[in-house]
């Protein structure tokens, strides 16, 4: 039986990336639907107990490649091992996180396998297809749904004739959920030394300065997000102040990140992280379609904007028309007065 296959990414401090666990959760659902197994692969160095953070998501077979040369990530040795493994286990679907690693690796693998790959999917569902020209029918295809044209259209992509059907998904788009902390899966060890070739090491890492993840914006119940309208790095101080007062995390639109007001880690939207907090306060965010896609499932949305016609107002529960420099201090003051 051709299984579902998920590439699990290892972050700094040897932790399994959230996005990989989100994909495992989705992979489990697809495997149940297709009545097949869920397989995962993880590559790295000193992966002690890594299975404890993978198997509970319902993984039936976990392939582990442990080798001193497999951390930090390098394109060519990773590609060699993944291509070799996919050729051996022949999955029908292969999923990767749309991270800098996933978006570096997956296209290289797809090209080597001459397979179709769909980037940054927002939905993965099983469906059927009839080829117009030939009348040929396909069952149990993976519908890969993704925004295109700058988010103005949503396209459903299929790969009828090549396997695996490959896709990448951004962090936060899928929800993660443990199936059973005692879930029993087999572990297969990969002999990386045998597969890697000398020419896989023509590129080498000279220096790395990577910070461990500091902010977990997805986990926040309340998010205060600033846009280009915040005006400056200094302008964001008010957002942090309100955040500290009401217990919220600070996020940002792409425009604010590109302008250098805040770090990239806080970016919300189609090219950042997708969030679903209880309350989302959008400050000076006009609400480009790409931003709205990453926060529209928030339970409640408040927009604070000078512009009564900002697109974000149309999906907000409350719209406050006014200056942030006026509104935010008033919110802080009012909260302090009334929360006792």
């Amino acid at each position: 039986m051709n299984n579902i296959f998920v590439f699990c990414e290892i972050e700094e401090n040897n932790v399994v990336a959230d996005v990989s666990q989100e994909l495992l959760t989705k992979g489990r659902v697809l495997a149940n639907q297709l009545n097949c197994k869920l397989e995962a692969v993880v590559l790295g160095d000193k992966l002690t107990d890594v299975e404890k953070n993978i198997l509970p998501y319902g993984v039936d077979i976990l392939h582990i490649a442990e080798h001193g040369k497999l951390y930090p990530y390098l394109t060519l040795p990773f590609a060699s091992i993944i291509v070799d493994l996919i050729k051996k286990v022949q999955p029908q679907v292969a999923l990767f996180g749309a991270t800098t690693i996933g978006r570096d690796l997956a296209p290289r693998v797809a090209s080597a396998l001459k397979c179709g790959l769909t980037a940054d999917c927002t939905e993965l569902v099983i469906g059927e297809h009839t080829e117009n020209r030939t009348g040929k029918e396909y069952k149990d295809l993976l519908y890969q749904v993704r925004p295109a044209f700058g988010g103005n259209i949503i396209a459903t992509i299929i790969n009828p004739d090549t396997r695996p059907q490959m896709a990448t998904v951004r962090e936060g788009v899928m929800k993660k959920e443990i199936v059973n902390s005692q879930y029993q899966g087999e572990i297969h060890r990969i002999n990386a030394e045998e597969i890697m070739r000398g020419e896989d090491f023509v590129a080498r890492i000279i220096e790395r300065h990577i910070e461990a993840r500091k902010i977990n914006i997805k986990a926040a119940n309340i998010i205060i997000a600033g846009g280009y309208g915040v005006g400056s790095r200094d302008g964001f101080k008010l957002l942090y102040e309100l955040g500290a007062a009401i217990g919220a995390e600070v996020g940002a639109s792409r425009a604010a990140v590109d302008a250098g007001f805040v770090e990239h880690e806080r970016q919300i939207g189609q090219t950042g992280i997708t969030v679903r907090p209880k309350l989302y306060i959008a400050c000076g965010i006009s609400g480009q379609i790409q931003h709205r896609a990453g926060m529209m499932e928030s339970s409640m949305i408040i927009s604070i904007n000078n512009d009564p016609h900002a697109p974000i107002n149309s999906i907000a529960d409350y719209t406050i028309i006014g200056d942030l420099s006026e509104v935010l201090p008033r919110m802080i003051k009012s909260f302090r007065k009334n929360s006792k």
């Binding site: 396209a155 299929i158 790969n159 009828p160 529960d317």
Partner: peptide, 20 residues
Amino acid sequence: PTKVKKIESVVFKAKESKVL
């Protein structure tokens, strides 16, 4: 290998926004 099965335009459900 990839085929476009369907294209839709993006529709956001507009909410009744209370303006303050």
